[in-house]
Amino acid sequence: MSRDVLNPLTHINISNGKKTVLELKSLSKTYKTGDRALTDISFSVPAGQVVGLIGPSGAGKSSLIRCINRLVEPSSGSIYLGETELTKLSGRALRQARRRIGMIFQEYALVERLTVMENVLSGRLGYVSGWRSFLRRYPQTDIDQAFGLLERVGLGDHYNKRADELSGGQRQRVGIARALEQNPELLLADEPTASLDPKTSRQIMRLIQGVCREMNLPAIINIHDVVLAQNFADRIIGLRAGQVVFDGPPSALSHKALTCIYGAEDWDQVQQSSESQNDEFLFSNAKVLELT
């Protein structure tokens, strides 16, 4: 397979032979307007791996994430979640596949006029029947789990508050609880810290990283803050103009790699807070694909 050629290191050093949860095979997306968002994307994610997806605005990060749970229809290529081919599904089967994928959003995307509890329980919508969800009569196990998750994200007392009464950080915690309430096999996060201050951003990233460790849950986090990505991801995938131009461990994210992803910039300033790195040495470990 081509990805093995592109980046042997990912599979030797990072996946450690763990079971593959998600596999993308030459995924492409062209919008109706003719904009080519993604070109021939292939990679796989093993259980428990937190992937930071970085790249400039408009590189296709958001499209890529949304293609995985088919909120955006891929134009070609295939996506495997475990044994299931997601690109072939429709209707009920698609909804049943979606419930296996938890998603966290940029602007939290909570239903603001519902209570925190209803928002968390909405993670079970793919499982419960229509009348149960309509009457808000969820199975006791779902409610127990929701209380447990709210406790875990530190919002145990807020369950009957309306979502719009919470602060940004609290809302994102509810968003995380909602995603986890799905008992997902994969977590997708679309710029989860974009609307948060730096401190809360780190807390949220730490929380996501923590739950992924606890539950051996793989995650793809689309994030524009390179330092956050380096600190909290196990692996970085760099996207530029819809193509994967970097795929390696955070430590391999050298100046040259960043220039390849984002274009020329004084990267010393960006990376001041992260540990000093031997660029030349690390660069040799990760393969950087130069764009033509």
Partner: peptide, 13 residues
């Protein structure tokens, strides 16, 4: 809240 969470039931307010 402690009492309620220990019962772990929930009804929409």
């Amino acid at each position: 809240t402690g009492a309620i969470t220990s019962l772990r039931t929930w009804k929409r307010p």
